[in-house]
């Protein structure tokens, strides 16, 4: 195919802007349906077949609402921050080992850039809360950064362990290795658990939705946002959901292959992880920030260190 057409397709359709946004809305629908069925409810039902258009309806509704900026905050920062978060996550989406342009988006070290880009939204939440000039915003932002200190180190260690085994920082290499040796998932079980918990914390979903604890601080960093800016923040959150799950799927569950098989494999593996995260959301209560820090440093960090040691031992003994 014509090179320009390929690039345009990848930038805008898959894994580009519209394709990713559509997948994000689909992930939102799956999450809400699973959450509802566990709670003996039905979830979205009427918009579209089985409610599948409900997330799209929510975004459209948000876009049509009044957009208020607090008087005391810096207009530029307040308006720019949601776009910054969206841009970061969209760029991370382009680095996933899918699509037709592997020559462009796959290079040694892209895993690190991916992790960095996925960590940016948390800093943006902090800044957004800070610039809201409301008590709830500042409190939520501070909690977001405190939570970052809790889960980020175990999460990074867990995600980097397969990289150690592969001997490369390149995401496509890692996924190729785990695709050709499916049993490696058992060797990485500890890392997989820590990574799933870390991803739930990064996405700030129950049991780790402390920054946005609805019954305590109303909306956390997003309290003062409304209208279009809130729509962008909402989309960013859903997008990070898909991108994070896809990253974990490509690292631990064997990636997506190449050619036309990518699309179904991507859907199946990513949505498997989304399903696990939704079940976790329905089955637990929210933790308190000091309980989370204690849990992370007492259990998650040692677990990932143990996993790291295990992989080193495996490599030294030439088993892997």
């Amino acid at each position: 195919m014509n090179e320009t057409l390929q690039v345009l397709f990848s930038l805008f359709i898959f894994p580009g802007l519209f394709g990713m946004v559509a997948l994000a809305l689909l992930a939102d629908w799956v999450d809400r349906k699973v959450y509802a069925r566990v709670q003996q409810r039905v979830g979205p039902m009427y918009t579209g077949k089985a409610g599948i258009l409900q997330p799209l309806a929510d975004v459209i509704k948000l876009l049509s609402k009044e957009d208020i900026t607090p008087g005391e905050s810096s207009k530029f920062m307040f308006n720019f921050l949601p776009l910054a978060a969206f841009a970061a996550v969209m760029s991370a989406a382009l680095l996933l080992p899918i699509g037709f342009l592997n020559a462009y988006n796959s290079f040694p070290g892209d895993l690190l850039i991916m992790l960095y880009l996925l960590g940016l939204p948390t800093i943006v939440y902090f800044l957004a809360g800070w610039h809201s000039h409301s008590y709830f915003g500042i409190f939520g932002g501070v909690r977001a950064v405190t939570q970052l200190f809790a889960y980020e180190v175990p999460f990074l260690l867990a995600v980097l362990t397969p990289a150690l085994l592969t001997g490369s920082w390149q995401l496509s290499e890692i996924s190729r290795l785990s695709a050709s040796h499916p049993l490696y998932l058992l060797a990485h079980l500890l890392a997989f658990t820590v990574a799933i918990l870390g991803l739930q914390a990064k996405l700030e979903r129950v049991p780790f939705d402390i920054p946005e604890a609805e019954t305590e601080i109303v909306g956390g960093p997003t309290t003062e946002y409304s209208g279009r800016k809130l729509a962008v923040l909402h989309l960013t959150h859903e997008l990070m959901f898909v991108v994070g799950s896809a990253t974990l799927a490509s690292i631990f569950l064997g990636g997506f292959g190449s050619g036309l098989w990518q699309f179904p494999l991507f859907l199946v593996k990513t949505f498997a992880i989304i399903f696990i995260l939704s079940l976790m959301r329905a089955a637990a209560a929210r933790m308190r920030i000091d309980q989370l820090i204690e849990f992370s440093w007492k259990y998650l960090a040692p677990m990932s260190c143990l996993q790291f040691l295990f992989i080193i031992v495996l490599k030294v003994l030439e088993i892997a």
Binding site: V38, Q39, Q40, R41, V206, P207, D209, A213, E214, T215, A282, A283, A284, A285, R286
Partner: peptide, 16 residues
């Protein structure tokens, strides 16, 4: 009480 701690599943069950 369950809703206050973010445990919406128990909230739905008990109200059912």
């Amino acid at each position: 009480a369950a809703h206050e701690v973010g445990f919406d599943t128990v909230f739905m069950y008990s109200w059912k």
